[in-house]
Simulated scan of single mutants.
Amino acid sequence: MTQMVDIKTVPTTAEYRYGRGWHCLGEAEQYRDGQIHTLNIFGTRLLAFAADEGNISVLDAHCPHMGADLSTGELVNGRIVCPFHHWEFEASGRCAAIPYCKRIPPKAKTRKWLTKEVNRLLFVWNNPEGKAPEEGVEIPHLPEIDSDEWDHDWHLDLMIIETNPRELVDNLADAQHFGPVHGTPTKYFANVFEGHIGEQIFHGDSERLGGDLVAESAYYGPATHFTRMRAEFDGMTVESILLNCHVPITPDSFELRFGVLVKKIPGWSEEQNRELALQYVQQNRESFYQDVDIWKTKVRIDNPLLAEGDGPVYQLREWYSQFFMDEADVPAALKERREIVTVAK
């Protein structure tokens, strides 16, 4: 189930360099519905569709012929048919047929974006340099997604947030907002930065999500964030995995997908576990939306005035900056492991 939450109207902005990395487009299965899906992301328009064999392709949406929007065309026999002159494009992006011409121009193709499916989710790779991911730059497989001990429904919410994505990523190093915003004072807080991965370890007590809360999370690149959580909730130990991922639309707006997986309670019926999952998902939603309310009205501060115990905000932003520069310019130091404990036990 996907719940749509429209925060604000998306503005039009100037050209901007979007982060290098894998970006989540939601659950893969939703694209296997025989339809063309319009994607307004990375400051442009793309389209996604599944060919007859079920493989999902993401293509530039504007026809190289005369610029028509291919996402408003038709999907016929696994090909995108342009609404303007009925040129037909294969899943590879190559034009395969022109109704009034036997010879297809060699350059008649639209860009195909690199995609992959992991954890029942569809990801698209963005790199302004046009290069494939370096070795090891990937989205990790979550073994829980294949386990019968876990509910496999992500319970995804999709919303539009009208701000720069850095506001969201800043939370990875913000040790002191948990108490004021979420009612979960921090008992232990640490960060680890190494290469394309930025981690957070949090311990606290939450009125909403349960006592003895332990949350271990990581960004894999600039936009995909998984959190493993464990807490005592209604007298039970509840384990969950949170998905918090975004895709930029413009420099000052992004699509944000938030989802939760919940581990089943042994001995409970499917109905009981489903009810627990929905209840816990709702508690997580309400907690997460407290952050959303802050982002809606705050302003961007490039050089924040920090106090002792705030967390390594500057170190986080240094780590984050690597995704917005050429790979050859990324400092070697950012590949080294850095551990920072902000709140000790």
Rank of each mutant, 00 (worst) to 15 (best):
K107G: 13
E129T: 04
I139K: 01
E135S: 15
H86Q: 15
E74S: 14
I80R: 00
V137W: 15
K112P: 12
T110I: 14
N126E: 12
G130C: 07
P105I: 11
E138P: 00
F89A: 08
L142M: 10
A132S: 12
I80W: 00
R94Y: 02
H141V: 10
R94H: 06
H141L: 10
W113L: 15
L75N: 01
P133V: 09
I98R: 04
A91W: 00
G136K: 14
A108D: 01
K109S: 11
E134K: 07
N127Y: 12
N77F: 09
E117H: 02
F89L: 11
E138F: 00
V124T: 15
G130R: 11
L142R: 02
V76S: 04
P140C: 12
P133M: 05
I98K: 04
V81L: 04
P83M: 03
E135Q: 15
G136H: 09
A132F: 05
A96G: 11
F89N: 09
P83Q: 02
P133R: 06
W125G: 10
V124Y: 13
W113K: 13
E74A: 14
N77K: 15
P105Y: 02
W87E: 02
E117M: 06
P140F: 13
P106K: 05
P140M: 14
P99A: 10
L142E: 04
I139F: 00
E135H: 14
R79A: 13
T110Y: 02
S92F: 02
E117V: 14
K131G: 02
K107E: 12
N127A: 15
W87N: 03
K112M: 13
A96E: 03
V76R: 09
L75P: 00
A91R: 03
E88Y: 03
K131C: 04
G73H: 05
W113T: 09
K107V: 08
L122T: 14
N119L: 07
I80E: 00
K116F: 00
T110A: 05
T115G: 08
R111Q: 09
R79P: 00
W87L: 13
C82I: 09
E138H: 10
V81E: 03
K116I: 09
V76Q: 06
G130K: 10
K102C: 00
Y100M: 15
E117T: 08
H141G: 03
E134Y: 02
Y100F: 15
P128V: 04
A97P: 00
L114V: 14
E117R: 02
E90W: 00
A91P: 00
P83L: 03
A132R: 13
E138C: 04
E129R: 05
G73V: 05
G73K: 04
R94W: 01
L142N: 01
F123Y: 12
A96D: 02
E117L: 08
P140L: 11
V76K: 12
R111E: 11
C82A: 08
V76F: 10
T115R: 10
G93E: 07
R79E: 13
H86D: 10
L121Q: 10
E135D: 15
I80V: 15
R120M: 04
F123C: 05
I80L: 13
N77I: 08
W125P: 08
K102N: 11
G136Y: 09
C101N: 14
R103L: 14
K112W: 05
V137P: 03
V76W: 09
E74I: 01
